[in-house]
Amino acid sequence: MNRTLGLLFVILILGFASCSPVTLVKPLEKNQKAVTASLGGPMIVYSDLPIPIPFCNAGFSYGINSRVTASAQLGLTSLAFGVFQLDPGILYGIQMPENNNQIGVSAFGKTHFMFDKWEGNFRWYPELGIQTYKEWGKNLAYLGASGWFETRYPAEQRAAGNVWVPMLNFGYTRQNTKWNLTAEAKWIAPNISKEDIVVDFIGPGTHGALGLYFGLVRKF
């Protein structure tokens, strides 16, 4: 009956949804710049159709050196709802592959800052992640894990009692000289039940949601 109540009540559920794709898993070259854009989100059932929540982000990245890339992303969908969301972060190359036979490993740390114009509510959530990737030719495939961390304590002040929201992801990037195109799938919050809530998230079993994302990188 009221299954549709939320329906889109949650179209902007950032906890599940603002987890933007990892558009960069391999650090940029020193002093290299890139503009990034991404679209996608968790899959939900909307009007009986499975769709990804259309979150849109835009960002900028800069190679501080060959191992460290700084970036910041702005949530455009959030902005349309009067929520300013900025996600600055650092990507660090732990293991830089010297040839195509080696696997690269990188780690990132981000903080998701949010602030709404309606009531001035501010939230921030750190995110940590690690990615492994393999290149062949112009192709790059990656596999990783990350997690958002709750910052509101004590738990009694929150309805959601989760300390962290983990994610597992894998993706594919087509790398050109100037452009990268990425498609990524995520299993969001595999430790958290998606039953008995106002949104019909799609995902395997009773826990977590499946997310689909597409990313675009323009390097300078």
Partner: peptide, 23 residues
Amino acid sequence: YGNAQTMVEDAAKLSLPSSYYTN
């Protein structure tokens, strides 16, 4: 239902305020 805040957090799984989505 409890309140809008509960509904949002229940779906978001994080302590997001309901003011981000609804009046």
